[in-house]
Computed example of a mutant assay.
Amino acid sequence: MTAKRGLITDTFKVVKKARKDDKRNKRPPSPPAADPEPPRPSKREIDLQGLRKFDLDWRFGPCTGISRLQRWERAALHGLDPPREIKDILLTESVDPEYTHSLWRDYPL
């Protein structure tokens, strides 16, 4: 016949868990930590976010193949009332390609 198998408790030591009611070793709860203020976006990040929104707004026409300033001027010429803030941003940062080129510049036509 087969050998008699022992119980699992014969091999492993039985450990009793402490009850949840047992408050002897508990420390008093610490006061909740104040949430640190999230970092504020820089002016550049705010400007680039506004330019991305301008790129994604189809009311001002397509934006592939032209610069953001050209698109803004075309929209103004056709009476579409593009945001003046966008033109101000584009005129102050006229040399940075991250400002001048549209969001879709890396995709082929």
Rank of each mutant, 00 (worst) to 15 (best):
Leu103Val: 07
Pro36Gln: 07
Asp106Ala: 15
Arg44Thr: 09
Leu109Met: 13
Lys26Tyr: 06
Leu51Asn: 02
Asp106Cys: 10
Asp22Lys: 02
Asp88Ala: 14
Lys4Cys: 05
Pro82Ile: 02
Tyr99Lys: 09
Phe60Gln: 03
Asp10Cys: 00
Ile89Glu: 03
Leu90Ala: 05
Asp21Pro: 01
Lys13Met: 01
Arg44Met: 08
Met1Lys: 15
Ser94Lys: 12
Ser94Met: 03
Lys20Arg: 11
Arg52Trp: 04
Asp106Ser: 13
Leu109Lys: 15
Arg19Pro: 12
Leu69Thr: 09
Arg24Leu: 05
Lys26Met: 11
Asp22Trp: 07
Ile86Met: 09
Val95Trp: 00
Glu98Ala: 15
Val15Met: 04
Asp57Val: 07
Trp58Val: 15
Ile89Asn: 02
Val14Phe: 00
Leu69Pro: 05
Ser42Leu: 04
Ala75Gly: 08
Leu48Asp: 00
Lys87Phe: 00
Glu73Ala: 10
Pro62Asp: 14
Pro29Asp: 14
Pro41Met: 11
Thr11Lys: 12
Leu109Arg: 14
Lys53Glu: 15
Pro83Asp: 12
Glu98Trp: 04
Ala33Ser: 12
Ala33Thr: 10
Thr11Met: 04
Asp81Thr: 05
Pro31Ile: 07
Thr11Asn: 07
Asn25Arg: 09
Leu7Glu: 10
Ser42Arg: 04
Gly79Lys: 13
Lys13Glu: 14
Ile46Tyr: 01
Lys23Gly: 10
Lys43His: 02
Pro41Trp: 00
Leu7Phe: 03
Ile8Trp: 04
Pro28Asp: 13
Ile89Leu: 13
Phe60Thr: 03
Glu73Val: 08
Arg44Ser: 04
Arg40Thr: 09
Arg27Ser: 09
Leu90Asn: 06
Asp57His: 02
Gln49Val: 02
Pro32Tyr: 05
Val95Cys: 01
Glu93Val: 01
Ser102Phe: 03
Ala75Gln: 08
